[in-house]
Design a binder for these strands. Sequence first.
DNA 1: AGTTGTACCATTAGTACACACGGTACATAT
DNA 2: ATATGTACCGTGTGTACTAATGGTACAACT
Lengths: 127, 127
Amino acid sequence: MEITIDIESATPLFSQLVMQIKQAVERGLIQPGDPLPSIRQLANDLDMNNKTVAKAYRLLERDSVIVTKGYRGTFIHPEAKNNCTVDLNAWVRKELTQTIQSFKEAGVTDSEIRIAFADVLNQNSGV
Amino acid sequence: MEITIDIESATPLFSQLVMQIKQAVERGLIQPGDPLPSIRQLANDLDMNNKTVAKAYRLLERDSVIVTKGYRGTFIHPEAKNNCTVDLNAWVRKELTQTIQSFKEAGVTDSEIRIAFADVLNQNSGV
DNA sequence: AGTTGTACCATTAGTACACACGGTACATAT
DNA sequence: ATATGTACCGTGTGTACTAATGGTACAACT
């Protein structure tokens, strides 16, 4: 599996990693059940921090594209091929677009929306 | 009509103005049809910038608590008493709370929500 | 002993925005 | 002339977030 990370790119490193692994799954370059390099290993190979790779892995597992089995390592999820096309972010954006649209129609200012949003997100983080 | 602005307060100046005018309407201290001081006049009296007062007036008109009649000045809206109890921000926050809650239940990260939100809000601003 | 994922402490640079301020200008009316 | 609301150019300060980095430590297993 070949992974190319562009330090110069505007897209975050962890995001590039996520996309590339998803693409590799889609193209069948890696199959369900295949093992992935360990976080430390991959971080070393790509010359980036452990945390950054860990972040990418965390998101990939959230999307059920990979499965981490603790000390046994990380593997491609059985249903990876289906799950990596499901774009959670697209759904979030669609929902938000609707909600924000209704706000604007009611005359709510952009900055009012932003402030309310920040409030809500911070309040719920403690719950 | 007495307005007291607290420079030290954490709540923004324009917000204090909005609240105080709404309260004055609720308590009947100012009646529908009554004229309000001009933006420049009030800014001078309260020792704040024209823009800040204008911002408060703009929001009050958005909420149909006041009516600006151009060169003829600004007046209390006929339906002011009903409209000033309607809290647009409260509605916005309630809606956002629901939406964000559903995102979190789907496992979406706070920062992902923030990014999607910023994207959507900026895209729609051009529409 | 060495490796797995994960959690915690932290810092740095960059970006984006809110708020308030200042000045200037406009059309419309008295 | 003077006043109305409104719109545009801008500045400065403070806050808050992202992304990425570093180090240390843990339980569980080979």
